[in-house]
């Protein structure tokens, strides 16, 4: 037997066995209108946000609510880099207030984040979502766009990351 190196065995083990499915990452978002401006409510797994480094260290096995609140700046930056809202007047501003944050137990623990959006126009609203795609290969957003006439339930993924299609 000339099975030489341990690392060869590790790869060998990987090579010779069938694949199985890994866990699927899903977030939810409601998009509605409040006082002539869009309001987004993003429900995202605390575990996924932690892994993405949006709440500090990605190696945390435990997390406190205070740590979540303390990550406000980091999380704001993460949101502003990956969630964009535009109108006919151009890019809209997205903010979130920690006093509105909640958690929800839904198979796993979700952070419920209301995101206030300020747009320069009442028309041509469009959401572009690219959160968690870079560190959860199977991440998808189940979007509930409640604003007429484009009201719809649909799925956003790396292949189709914005809605509605046409402004």
């Amino acid at each position: 037997m000339k099975h030489r190196l341990f690392f060869v065995l590790l790869v060998l083990w990987a090579a010779g066995l069938p694949a199985h499915a890994h866990k699927f990452s899903t977030a939810y978002m409601d998009v509605m209108q409040q006082q002539d401006q869009p309001l987004l409510v993003w429900r995202v797994s605390l575990h996924d946000l932690t892994q993405a480094g949006a709440l500090g260290s990605s190696h945390n096995a435990e997390l406190s609510w205070q740590q979540v609140l303390n990550s406000e700046t980091l999380l704001r930056s993460y949101i502003n880099n990956r969630i964009h809202f535009t109108s006919a007047a151009g890019a809209c501003r997205i903010t979130t207030n920690t006093s509105d944050w909640r958690v929800k137990q839904q198979q796993q623990l979700f952070l419920v984040l209301p995101l206030q959006v300020y747009c320069g126009s009442l028309s041509g609203w469009q959401l572009s979502y690219q959160a968690l795609f870079d560190n959860q290969h199977n991440h998808k957003l189940l979007l509930n766009w409640k604003i007429k006439p484009a009201a719809a339930n649909l799925v956003l993924s790396p292949d189709k990351h914005f809605y509605p299609d046409v402004i």
Binding site: S64, V103, K104, V112, L154
Partner: peptide, 28 residues
């Protein structure tokens, strides 16, 4: 999708935690 969104709506389990509340995200 409608069914899943209904299940995912804010309900009894949505709450504002206490600052000291801690969760285990995954067992080590």
């Amino acid at each position: 999708l409608i069914c899943v969104f209904w299940l995912a709506q804010p309900g009894a389990t949505e709450y504002r935690p206490d600052g000291n509340e801690r969760w285990v995200l995954h067992t080590g």
